[in-house]
Simulated assay, not measured.
Amino acid sequence: MADDNAQSFLIGDVELTRVVEWQAPYAVTREFLPAAGPEVWQAHRDVLVPDHWEPETDRAVVAIQTWVLRSGGRTVVVDTGVGNGRERPGNPMFHRRQGGDLPSLLARAGVRPEDVDLVVNTHVHGDHVGWNTHDQDGSWVPTFPAATYLLPAADDRHFGPDGDFGGGVRPDDRLIYEDSVAPVHKSGQALLWDGEYRIDDHLTLESAPGHTPGSAVLRVESRGERAVLVGDLLHSPVQIPHPECNSRFDLDPARAATSRRRVLERAADQGELVIPAHLAGSGVAEVNRRDGSLVFARWTP
């Protein structure tokens, strides 16, 4: 792929294209992963610098990105970033943001909105559903007019009106649902799933709760090759050898740590490439087990 913001590779017959919307130092490490002290970051410095940690400022480096999968003749978009013009008073970085343009980035990668068959939201957070919709004459309408949007039912309940928009804890949760999820329901394009959902012979969604009630991973398997897109199960490579370390965004830390360990152990045992939503750099990791512990093996080019 010629575009610097888009790189492609194959898992068997499935093509995966990574489209990077934004990448930069984000949060101070102790705020980002409260249980991971300075000694943890230093111990893994060779893996983390420069793509995942900026030691000079002690900030974790993250990316906002979308994955496009072409499988069985269909085009699948996984997570849709932040979006533009959103009211996000609880997050100054995303509040009324105008710097992103995912549709243009997708077009440069050869994907038009009308070409997309499925949109997968791994969970209902603002940086994963933002481009579900766009502003059309003052109304939010689906960005991908022919797509079915696959939404975790547990997240839809929690963040939607039935859950009082996340229990009313964060005003942003109501705003995110109203501008990025409710219009997809209104258009009749939403499909809610729970537990496990098989998209086709190569792609399967699987619940991995904790970060949110419905957080999901997407397993890819074709011709004996495997990968797993883990969404926000991981926010940093530090969490591979330390799956007990949660991010400050995990709503249920105990369940998040359990899901993280389960998915990473399976990846190590089955040779699945691990593809988190926010890892910068290569963005694709190999994980092994050594003496009963999980270890980072290498980045996949």
Rank of each mutant, 00 (worst) to 15 (best):
M1R: 06
N5V: 07
G12D: 05
D13S: 15
V14A: 11
V14S: 13
E15N: 12
W22N: 08
W22R: 05
W22E: 10
Y26W: 11
V28Q: 10
T29L: 08
F32V: 03
P34G: 00
P34W: 00
G37D: 09
G37M: 05
P38C: 03
Q42M: 01
A43T: 08
L48N: 08
H52G: 09
W53H: 12
E54Y: 11
R59C: 05
A60R: 02
I64A: 12
Q65F: 08
T66C: 03
W67L: 13
V68N: 04
S71F: 02
S71G: 06
R74N: 13
T75Q: 07
V78N: 11
G83N: 10
E87D: 14
N91G: 02
P92D: 08
H95D: 15
D101W: 08
L105T: 03
V111W: 00
R112Q: 15
E114H: 14
V116Y: 10
V116S: 11
D117F: 06
L118T: 15
V119K: 10
V119H: 03
N121A: 10
T122D: 02
T122I: 06
H134I: 03
Q136T: 14
D137R: 15
T143W: 12
T143H: 05
P152Y: 00
A153Q: 12
D156S: 15
F165C: 09
R170I: 06
R170H: 11
P171V: 04
D179G: 02
D179Y: 13
V181H: 09
P183D: 01
S187R: 15
Q189N: 09
A190F: 03
W193H: 03
D194I: 04
E196D: 05
H202D: 04
H202C: 12
L203Q: 04
G210V: 06
G210Q: 12
T212Q: 07
T212E: 01
S215C: 05
S215K: 11
L218G: 00
R219V: 07
E221P: 08
E225P: 13
E225W: 14
L233W: 02
S236T: 14
P237C: 02
H242T: 01
N246I: 13
F249P: 02
A256D: 10
E265C: 11
G271E: 10
E272Q: 14
L273P: 11
I275K: 00
I275Y: 04
A277E: 01
H278N: 01
H278C: 13
R290Q: 00
P301K: 01
